[in-house]
Every structure is written in structure tokens, then in C-alpha cells.
Simulated assay, not measured.
Amino acid sequence: MRKLILAAGLVSTLSACGGGGGLFNRERPDEFAVSRQAPLVIPPDFALVPPAPGTPAAAAVDSRSEAMQAMFGGPAARSASESAALNAAGRANAASGIRSSVGDPDTQVVDKGATTRDIIAAPEGDGQEARAATPQP
């Protein structure tokens, strides 16, 4: 009986919220009417000037080479120690365009196996986790 009275009270309370009159039914302002509209303004020209005579048109520039230049940069000046390290590593024998040849589908690769992959994926640190366990007699 208690549950029935509680349910009837809950239904009457909820029905009062959405009814035609009462405490919760009041006029609300229109949120679109409250906001102000900014006036239309002609944007500045940002001091744009026509291209100088003899310069290539924007459509004539190779976007691929521009993107490569932006990502990897051009030949940078090397310090003496960096040049010595590169020369010791065999800079003269290095293949030019290695990034292009690695991404080529015709490049032959050798599968080094799971051991090499595990060594590369080993956690950083002093190697406590990477030590081999000694066999127990």
C-alpha cells in the first residue's frame, strides 16, 4: 500500500512539471534573440602585393619538393666533430636517397626474427629486466 501511495505522489509531482500552468512554466527569453550580430566588415588586404616579374607563379612551384624541403631541410652546415664522426662512419660510401630506397616496394629486406625485434623493443633502463636467468640445478 505504501508503494502505491508513493508511486501516485511521484506521478502527480511529475505531471505538474510539464503541465499547462504552475511554477515551472514561465516565459523564457529566446537565446538567439539575445545575442548580438556583429556588423559585416571588409577584411584588410594584409598588404598583398602582386608577384615580382620573373618569379614563378604559385601553381608552377613543385609542392612535393617544397614539402620535402620543409620536412627534412636542405644541406645543413656540420660542425667539425660531426663531420669527423660521419666520415669515420663511412659517409662517402653511404647510399644517397636512402629514405626513398627503403620505402620502395622492390627493396629486398631480411627478416632478422623475433630475437632482434625483442632486443629493439626491450625496455630502457639498467637492464634488470633483460638479464638472463641462471639455470637452477
Rank of each mutant, 00 (worst) to 15 (best):
P123G: 02
G103R: 05
A33E: 14
S81Q: 14
V110D: 00
Q136T: 15
A7D: 05
V34H: 02
D104Y: 00
S35N: 10
P43R: 07
G127R: 01
V102I: 15
V11E: 01
I98P: 05
G74A: 05
S100N: 13
R78I: 13
S63V: 15
A85R: 01
Q69P: 03
P43G: 03
A70W: 06
F32Q: 11
I98W: 09
L4R: 11
V102T: 11
G74T: 07
M71V: 14
A33F: 07
P29I: 03
G73N: 01
D118Q: 13
Q136S: 15
D106T: 15
A122F: 01
V41C: 11
A80N: 06
S35A: 09
L23M: 15
I42M: 13
T116S: 09
G22A: 02
A133N: 10
S81A: 15
S65A: 01
A47C: 09
S79K: 03
P123S: 08
A77E: 13
A16D: 06
A60Y: 02
G103I: 08
S65E: 11
S15G: 08
E27Y: 08
D111E: 02
P43A: 11
A58P: 08
T115Q: 12
A8C: 08
V102E: 06
A92L: 12
A67L: 13
G54K: 02
A85H: 00
A16N: 08
P51F: 05
G73P: 01
A33G: 06
A33L: 05
Q108C: 05
T55L: 10
I5K: 06
A8D: 02
E27Q: 13
D126L: 11
T134A: 14
P53K: 07
P51Y: 03
A76L: 12
S81H: 07
I119P: 01
A57Q: 10
M1N: 03
S79N: 07
A89K: 10
A57N: 13
R28Y: 15
G125P: 00
G22Q: 05
L4M: 08
A60R: 05
F72E: 00
R99Q: 13
A130K: 10
C17L: 15
A47P: 03
D111C: 07
A76G: 03
F46P: 01
G113Q: 02
A122W: 04
R28T: 14
G9M: 14
A80L: 06
A92T: 12
V109I: 13
S81R: 12
A33I: 09
F24R: 10
L4P: 02
G21Q: 14
G74D: 07
G125D: 01
E31M: 11
A67I: 14
E27I: 12
G54E: 00
F32K: 07
A114G: 04
V102C: 06
A95S: 07
T107H: 09
P50G: 07
P44I: 04
D118C: 10
L10K: 00
K3C: 09
Q69V: 07
P29Y: 11
A33Y: 03
